[in-house]
Design a protein around this nucleic acid. Structure first.
Lengths: 116, 116
DNA sequence: CTTGCATACCTGCCAGTTCGAGGTATAATA
DNA sequence: TATTATACCTCGAACTGGCAGGTATGCAAG
């Protein structure tokens, strides 16, 4: 039988975090790049080369919608989470949670406990 | 200025788990494949195509040593953690911990809290 | 005024990881 | 004798994420 794959392993974290941030309010790409950096206390930093393609992919899948807005003479593309995107977020969050716990359960017996 | 990279993002989890298991006792490849599956309650499953290359890489780097042992007429290659491997484990565990916490901190405000 | 920096968007290619599929061999079991 | 479980291994595909680069505007400093 074909081996059941891990959920593509730790991949999809950028997507997960972007969906999470869009849950609160509509945001634009450049803003997301900085928000991820800030909210993770500078531990995680996804470049624009990561964020924009994810955004476009999400839009193609109908997980977000976009609209162009002019703010202070600047053109921005704001993204809004759809119901589908909400479901997708839950699914990814579950996967992440499950995975993190599994890793934790293997790590926990360690002599070197990080106490996450 | 050159962007400071994430620790290669979530990569290195197989290595992390293998090092962790070798902390307790010497083990052989096939055993590790099953131990990861079992100890993670079947959530994570790395194929042999993942485990063996990691083991070889660790040996090349001096993080583990190997010795061939005959058990019940079966030839097995047992791997033992070295001091260098121990240090490497701590480093990876720290990275993982830091990363997981950072993700958690972004996720925690969510309406859909998984309560990891 | 023009140089530089921050904002804001985008794409393409490269490098690193993981996965699956395949290959070999022996021992035990049916 | 055939299949399953043990035990080792490697290759190439696929997918990520990362970086470098490219465009354009507004604002501030020189």
């Amino acid at each position: 039988m074909p081996r059941e794959p891990n959920p593509n392993f730790m991949a999809g974290v950028p997507e997960l975090m972007i969906l999470r941030l869009l849950q609160d309010r509509e945001m634009y790409g450049y803003e997301l790049v900085q928000a991820i950096k800030t909210e993770s206390a500078d531990v995680i930093s996804f470049g624009e080369g990561v964020v924009y393609p994810v955004l476009h992919g999400l839009e193609d899948d109908g997980a977000v919608t976009s609209r162009r807005k002019l703010v202070d003479g600047r053109s921005r593309v704001y993204y809004t989470l759809t119901a589908k995107g909400e479901r997708r977020y839950r699914q990814l969050a579950d996967t992440w949670s499950s995975l993190a716990q599994a890793i934790q359960s293997v790590l926990k017996g360690s002599r070197y406990a990080t106490g996450l």
